[in-house]
Every structure is written in C-alpha cells, then in structure tokens.
Computed example of a mutant assay.
Amino acid sequence: MKDTSSFSIKNWNQDDRPREKFLSKGRTALSDSELIAILIGSGSREESAVELSKRILAGANNNLNTLGKMDVKELMHYKGIGEAKAITIVAALELGRRRSGEEGLKQKKITSSQSVFELLQPIIGELPHEEFWIIYLNNSNKVLQTTQLSKGGITGTLVDVRLVFKNALQLGAVAVILGHNHPSGTLKPSNADKTLTQKLKIAGESLDIKVLDHLIVTENSYFSFADENLL
C-alpha cells in the first residue's frame, strides 16, 4: 500500500510549509500556488495542497486573471477541491479584484481616456457578463462617485437614462463618463451603444451635464467614443 503521509504539509521541511514560510519570510516570499495552498488548507491523499494549487493554476494557464474568472463549479472539477475550498478561492480573488477597483478610485481625477480605463478595468474588465457604469465628476474632473447602473446578460444590458441624471443632480455632478464592458472582447461599438450614447448626451445637455466620454472596456484594452470623435 502506498504511503501517503508525506503529502501532508505538516510532514514537510519547515521552509516548504506555506504558513510557516509566510510568517518567517513574509507574504511576498510565497509563490501564487503557496498562497492558494494557504487558502485551501489541505490537499488530497495523492497530492499536497501546494501541488493541488499548482495544478489548478496550470489549468488557468498560470494566470491569476484567468483563475479569477473561474466559478465554483469549475474549480470543483479538480480532485481535492470541494465546494467550501472552491468558494474560498473565488472569494479571495474577488476581494483582490475589489481592492484593485478601490486603488483606481484613489486616482480621483480623470485626465484622459486611459485614466478612465485604469479606473474601470479592475471593476468590469474581466466579468463574464455585461455591466454599465457611470462615473460622476465635478467641475475639476474629480470623481464624485462611480456607480453600477445596470447588470445584464452577455448579450446586453438595459440603461435607465432618468436614473443616470437623477444621481448626477443629487451628487451635484457637472459631467459624467459612461462605461460598459464587452465580455466577448470586441472593441467595436454596436449600433445600440451609439444610440444610447447620443440619447444620454442629449438628455444631459438639457440639464447642463456633459457626457465627456463612453468607454467600452475589455480585459486588456478599451474603445473611447471621445477619442474616436463619436460624441
């Protein structure tokens, strides 16, 4: 009978134990797989938590952004990953995504379409479904609030124009920037995207609230209506 006791982390060399390594050498000393191993706590009878974590990462092309798109059911396909461990991994990566979004908000001032992309990409760039967001700005182009307006399926989302400007008036915003993601990865605006942009622009003009831009965001790039003279 095969001895599986060596696969337990507690039987490893002290330097190979991720929790002890975390405490003695600091979090930056750990690899991605070691950090994931700390989350899941244990592996299976055939492999250690670190080896299991390496296998999961390999299935995501060793890319944390790709891993972050995996859901609980996908993670549970790996032997040794039950529902609780899968939820733990998804929750940890979601916290990382939200932290990135908050870091973007610290920028506060919008200076270009690139700065809009840097703000919105951590929030919507990697989502498997479409979401529509509004950035509300004061007269110095500083961000007052970034708000999700709607969430839809992969084929599209519905936007309530009245709600956009109700929020703007309540915040005292003088300008807004529109943003939504294309889960397909395409940067080409649809006719619906163009129509909605013009609808919001016209509605804003009557309230002296400018629509400065509309960004289509994907994981790695963006399309700016303002840069392409479509506003």
Rank of each mutant, 00 (worst) to 15 (best):
T88A: 15
P128H: 09
Q107W: 06
K69W: 01
E94D: 14
G104D: 09
T88G: 02
G80P: 03
E94W: 04
P128W: 02
K69A: 08
R99S: 13
S112P: 05
I87G: 00
K69F: 03
M70S: 07
S115K: 11
L105W: 12
G68M: 11
E126K: 02
E126T: 12
K69E: 12
T111Y: 11
Y78H: 09
G68N: 06
A84K: 12
A84M: 09
G68H: 02
S112C: 10
H77Y: 06
G68W: 04
P122G: 11
I87D: 03
S113V: 11
A92P: 00
A86S: 08
S100W: 10
Y78E: 07
Y78W: 10
A84R: 11
K108M: 15
M70F: 14
A92W: 02
R98V: 14
I81C: 00
H129E: 14
E74V: 10
Q114P: 00
E103A: 14
H77K: 14
K69T: 13
L95V: 15
A86I: 06
A92Y: 04
S100H: 10
S100T: 11
F117P: 07
I110S: 05
V72W: 01
E103V: 15
A84V: 12
K73Y: 06
K79M: 06
K85C: 02
V90S: 05
I124K: 00
S112G: 14
D71L: 03
L105I: 13
G104K: 06
V116F: 07
G104I: 12
G125T: 01
K73V: 06
V116Q: 07
L75W: 01
S115P: 07
Y78I: 08
G80Q: 01
I87W: 05
K69P: 00
G125E: 02
H129R: 12
G80R: 01
Y78D: 07
G101I: 13
E118Q: 15
G125F: 01
I123T: 08
M76D: 01
P122T: 14
E103Y: 15
L127K: 06
E83K: 13
